[in-house]
Each structure stands twice: as C-alpha cells, then as structure tokens.
Design a binder for these strands. Structure first.
Length: 728
DNA sequence: AGCACGCCGACT
DNA sequence: GTCGGCGTGCTC
C-alpha cells in the first residue's frame, strides 16, 4: 500500500538497502515508536509492493516526503562484519550493492511452524491378514526403533501404502521424528590422526595461527596424498576447541561423500553442509545454527562465504586454484579472494590449500604476504613418476596417427607387464575439425564461429562452446561433393580407434564427460578401471583427478602443446596444472610410474619445468618472463569481450578498453568462441569480462572507460579476476 | 526482482 | 482496428 499511510513526519530517517539490483540504499522515515539500528532487517514499501531490506546506516536521508519503514522483522540483524563484506564486495566487483546483499540476506522465515517428519514404530500385534509385503515391512521394523516412513518402505521394498495399512491395523504407531541435526557438535579429539613429522609441523603452525586469532593467510601446498586435509583438520579441531566457527570452502563438486566420510571419521559427526542442493527448511535451520554460533564447522561451496557466522575463527579454501571458485553470472566474484577479504574483516586466519597453487597465490607466498607451508611430495615413501618428453619432430607418427613409436613401445611393455596405461588427450569427440577435401569448406558453429567437433558415437557435429548440435551430412553443404568430408585432428574417440588397431588384445575404455550412460555409469566405470578391469584408459581432463588408479604405471600425454597456444593469459598456468595432475596419476600404487609427454616444442619452458620435477622452476620462469616484459607479476591485463550478436562492436569496445588501460599490448581480445557457455546463453546484449592482475587500479580505469565510451551505467557487466591483496 | 510504459506483428 | 510480445526504466 502506498500513499499518505506510508509517510511519517518524525522519528528520523534510515538508509535501507534492498536486495535487488540497486546500487544505493533508499531513505525511509522511521515511524514514531520504532527504534532501528544498522543491520536490522525491515520491511519497506517499494513502488507498489512491500520488500525486505536492511538498515544500512542511520539518518543520512535527504529529508522531504519519504515513505516510512513498515515494520522491523523478527530476525537476527546482519552483523557489522557481514555488512562490511557486502560493501567491499560490491565496491570491488562493481556489482550493485543490493545484488551483493541478496547473496548474504537470509530469507525471512517461512510462515507456520515446521511440520515434523513422521516415523513409524513397531508396537502392536501383526495384522489379521498377513501378506508377504506386510511381513517384510514388519521384519524391517524389528527392534521397535522409530524409522522414517520412506526409509522403512525403501528398506523393506514395499510401497508407502503397505505401511499406512499397517498403521491402520495398529501394528505400527506414528510418531514425529526428532529433527535431523543440521550441525552436530564436532569432537576435536574424536580420532586424532597419526601425523608424519612434516605434517605435524605444518599442523602445529596452522594451530598456532588459529590460536593467535588474527588475520593472516597460509598457503598449504602439497600433492594429492600428502595429507593436506588431515593437516588442516587439526586447525579446524583447534577452532572447535576454542569454541569458534570454521568455514571450509570447496569447489561444489568436491563436496562429496568421500570428504564427508573423512570429516566424520576425524570429528565423529558430519559438518554443516552448504551447497545449492540444500534447500528449504534445512537451509533455513542451518543458517540459523550458523548465526547462533551453534554450527561449528560449515563445509560449503562458494556461496557459504556470505553466511552469517557469529564467530568465525578460521577459513579454509580447499583446492584454491580451482576455477569453480569463480562466479561469473550475477555478482561476479572469486570466492577464494573474497574468503581472504572476509578473513581480513573478521580478523581470522585463512588457509589456502592446493597441489598446484595459482600463480597469484604463489606470488603472494613468495613475497611474504602469505605464509608458505609445504608438505613433502608423497606420503608413505612413494616416489613421483619420472617424466620424459617425446619430440614429435623426430619421432613422428604416420599421417592420421597420433601415438609415437616411443609411446607405443612403452604401452606395449606395460601391457605385457599387466600394468595399466592412461592416454591423456584433452579433446572430447572424434575430431576437432571437419573439412571438405574438394572445396575446403570447414564446419563452423552458426552461433559462435568455433569449429564444430565431430562426435561419431552421437553421429553429430557439436559446438563445444554453445552446445549447438547438427547432423553430420554425407555431402559437402557448399560444393555438394559426395564422400569428401575429412576429419582433422584427434579427439579421444579417434584415439580409441588407433589404440584398437595398435593393441587389438588390450581392453580399452574412453572416459570423457560425454560418456554414454551419464555420470552414474561413469562412476561405475571409474571403479572398474581402479580395480584393473581395463588395460588402456583414453581420457580427457576428467581423469586428471579424483579416483585413484593403483595399477596405473604409465601416462601418455598425446599432445602436451595443447592449451599452450591459446590467448588466455593463464594458458601456461592451466596447462602446467593439468599436466602435473594427470602425470601424477602414474605410480600411485606399489610400482613406480612414468609419464611420456609428446610435444613439438621440447624447449617450451612449461614442459621443461614439468620434466625437471621442480615446480618452482615453472613459477620462477613464469614470473621472470612477465617481469622482463614489464608486466605485472602474474597475468597480463586481458579483456574477454563477448557479444552474442554484435561481434564488431564488442571488438571496438575491447580496443577502447585497451586504450583506456594504456596497455594496448597487454590486452587480449578473445572472441565469443572462448566465452563460457553461460555468457552466450545469457540475455545480455553485451557482457564484458575484464581479467586483470595486481598493479592495475581496476576501479579507476573501468570507471574512466565507461565514462569515455559514453556507456550508460549498468549497460556493461564486469566480472573481475584480480587478486584483492593489493586493495587490502 | 516486479511492474509499468512503449512500440511493432497476428487476430476476435 | 486491438491484444500482446518483451526491451527499457524505475522503485526512497
């Protein structure tokens, strides 16, 4: 309701931030009798309707005829630290403040009391009429325990109707189930692990940082299997002992049963779990438990960063280099960076863990901004695989083949020894390009100008950028020549053909994200690989991490140069990380492993650093190269301009940006082909993603650029990829 | 996010 | 002639 009823004459004014895409707080009058403080959640009239908002500050209102706050909601107020975080993130990401608030604001509690779930208990005599289904249900309820209806139905493989009938017969009694604990109290001493000397030393340092209860960032570096998780669990345990809360941020996919089991084994209970699949009342209750301080440990995906912790004593960012920490739609932020910022605001220690730290984290560690803890390479005396390069200029496979003689020999030896081999090729499908032998026509995506990838299993040409699919024709659409279409280059499917010809007796399998049968089938196949049911695995990035394959002793990287040539300023870093991960798959069991990397450029610094076995070399070389070029220590300034419907305009803007940044050579324009799927599908006519690194005053140049281009405010969306350390 | 205003295509 | 598509703009 609007109009005179909303207006009030005295009682002062407040600035209320509304969780919508609004950059400013709005002024409202405070009706007499209402006392409001910053952080209070209120209901306010906005246009024709009522909305929630948060009192952001007091009194700075512009006077005049203001609408009045309708009511103060019965919710815990946002605490000062969280408000500060919202302000900071909005400032830093150039997102409207209200949008950032929307990430942090709890939904007002749903109306009505929570309906408890019902369970049944075996109480009475068996029913007069017995059936096999009824007998199963009764047997499953043996012992008189209270069981959830659905769980009982599942266990006895009967329908809910059978159970309802038994309730009517008086055999079962219905009782409300106790509410599922959303965050039980972890026991810091439930099962303290036996740590190696190095692990114990690292754990002690982390425990000390938790005790000190001051902001500071520690990079905990160690390869998979070095026990990083056990080590940071000690810091979590210490926070629990001190009665303080811990946040463990992880990429969404890492929130797996495996992690939860490890946590439960260490602390006796599950952590509070926060991710997109947690919804409704459960979400609400966990939020309440976090706000009250009752939930001591939260393990969550990036959105967990904005939860209303009451007393945050520790933040852990697991696998800090993961790209999944980057949110690109809506408010664009990097959760790892914002975690550091939250740590600063809350004055809490932050632990970043990784086997292959991102360059910016590495630089921060080297410059002493972060404490650097390293765990020795492998736990339990296992050695790292030996790495070697295969020079494809000398050892050239025949036309249409991609496995060199050297690699093939190594695979044969492995086969004869009964050991597994992995062929890594980060290319899904059969062939990345299809062309007409007669006229040279190349199949291109109508939406994004990328080449269409031939998928033979699916009998289709697929665009890997936007998802466009078309049938693979029999004749050339341009010159109508018959049987003239040729596949160019290898994909995993095509590699599988080559493997089948070279090693007809081997049991091979192709593992990629488009595995026929979906993720469930894929999981069972991964287990089958782990138990040795296949001799040769041909895989994309998917096989780089996760499952352990103890019988794998050889990794062949089919094209180590792939990814080194793209315009992405992080190309070298990404390639280094993925190659390090995938080659590390060899020799995880009893026997030592080795890896062969096929390349046309054996002198490439990334590859040289890799085979040297010393990751420091890579980081040092990368940083030195940038310094020599007069660029910021990590990353060039780069702009990724994406336009689904106006490519020339987008490129013009990129050039304008380059001029504004006064670093024309430092700006790379990447066409929409490289754009993330979400962006192309997005509704925005234009979207600009600016990637920049330390040393560039992002705010200044972007605001300047917007002004100079005469772009109206809000017409360009900006995603940020820059280390916030320089602003702290 | 809603909700209004506004300007171009197929219909009672 | 209107109904309705969603593009743009506004909400203290």
């Amino acid at each position: 309701m609007s109009g005179e009823a909303d207006r009030a004459e005295d009682g002062g004014t407040v600035e209320v931030l509304i969780p919508l895409a609004l950059d400013q707080a709005y002024s409202y009058a405070v009706p007499p009798g209402l006392v409001l403080a910053p952080g209070d959640v209120v209901q306010v009239p906005l246009g024709p309707r009522q909305t929630v908002g948060v009192v952001w500050e007091r009194g700075a209102g512009r006077g005049g005829n203001l609408k009045a706050v309708t009511a103060k909601l019965d919710m815990p107020p946002l605490d000062g630290a969280l408000m500060k975080l919202v302000d900071w993130v909005a400032w830093y990401t150039l997102a409207p403040k209200g949008s950032v608030l929307a990430l942090a604001l709890r939904r007002p509690p749903e109306d009505g009391p929570e309906r408890p779930k019902l369970g049944v208990r075996l109480v009475g005599a068996p029913p007069a009429r017995m059936t096999p289904a009824r007998a199963r249900a009764i047997a499953a309820a043996e012992g008189g325990l209270l069981i959830a209806k659905s769980a009982l139905a599942e266990a006895a493989s009967v329908s809910a109707a059978v159970i309802d009938a038994l309730v009517d017969a008086g055999t079962f009694a219905v009782e409300p189930l106790p509410r599922e604990a959303v965050a039980a109290m972890p026991d810091p001493d439930h099962a303290a692990p036996a740590l190696s000397e190095d692990q114990a030393a690292a754990a002690a340092a982390l425990v000390a940082s938790v005790r000190a209860a001051t902001y500071g960032v520690t990079l905990l570096e160690g390869v998979t299997g070095s026990g990083k998780t056990e080590v940071y669990f000690e810091a979590v345990a210490e926070a629990v002992r001190l009665g303080r809360q811990s946040l463990i941020l992880m990429p969404e996919i890492a929130l797996t049963a495996q992690f939860i089991d490890r946590f439960e084994a260490r602390f006796g209970v599950r952590p509070g779990l926060w991710h997109s699949a947690v919804t409704g009342r459960r979400r609400e209750r966990l939020q309440a438990a976090i706000a009250s301080g009752e939930a001591k440990v939260v393990a969550g995906a990036r959105s967990a960063l904005f939860l209303p912790y009451r007393d945050l004593g520790l933040i852990v960012v697991d696998e800090e280099h993961e790209a999944a920490y980057k949110q690109e739609d809506g408010v664009a932020y990097h959760a790892r960076d914002m975690a550091v910022v939250r740590g600063r605001i809350e004055n809490a220690p932050v632990i970043l863990t990784s086997a292959t730290p991102s360059l910016e984290t590495r630089v921060n560690a080297e410059r002493g901004r972060y404490t650097h803890l390293k765990l020795p390479e492998r736990f339990g005396g296992r050695t790292l695989p030996t790495l070697g390069l295969v020079d494809l200029r000398q050892d050239k496979p025949p036309r249409g083949r991609w496995i060199s003689d050297t690699l093939a020999k190594a695979m044969t030896a492995n086969l004869e020894a009964g050991e597994q081999s992995l062929l890594f090729l980060n290319r899904r499908g059969y062939a990345p390009l299809t062309l007409c032998r007669d006229c040279g026509h190349r199949f291109q995506c109508p939406n994004c100008s990328a080449w269409l990838v031939d998928h033979r299993f699916r009998r289709a040409l697929v665009c890997h950028h936007c998802g466009h699919v078309e049938r693979r024709p029999h004749e050339c659409p341009q010159c109508h020549a018959q049987e003239s279409l040729t596949a160019c280059g290898p994909g995993v499917e095509r590699l599988a053909e080559e493997v089948a010809t070279l090693f007809p007796q081997a049991r091979g399998i192709v593992l990629s994200s488009d595995f026929p049968g979906g993720t469930e089938r894929l999981k069972t196949e991964l287990m089958a690989v782990a138990s040795g049911e296949f001799d040769i695995v041909i895989g994309t990035q998917l096989v780089a991490k996760g499952h352990n394959f103890p019988g794998m002793t050889l990794v062949g990287v089919v094209d180590a140069d792939l990814g080194l040539t793209s315009g992405d300023p992080r190309a070298a870093e990404r390639t280094f990380q993925v190659l390090r991960q995938v080659t590390g798959r060899a020799g995880r069991g009893e026997k030592p492993g080795r890896a062969l990397l096929q390349t046309h450029d054996p002198a490439h610094p990334v590859l040289k650093a890799l085979v040297s076995g010393d990751p420091e070399r890579f980081y040092a070389a990368e940083i030195a190269a940038r310094e020599a070029a007069g660029l910021p220590p990590f990353g060039r300034l780069a702009a990724l301009i994406v336009s689904a419907n106006n490519q020339p305009e987008a490129e013009a803007h990129a050039r304008a940006l380059a001029r504004c940044a006064e670093a024309p050579e430092g700006v790379a324009v990447l066409g929409p082909a490289e754009a993330p799927l979400a962006v192309l599908r997005g509704r925005h006519r234009m979207r600009l993603i600016v990637k920049t690194e330390r040393g560039v005053d992002l705010q200044a140049y972007l605001r300047g650029w917007l002004a100079r281009c005469g772009k109206p405010k809000g017409s360009v969306r900006v995603a940020v990829d820059v280390d916030p350390q320089s602003f702290l």
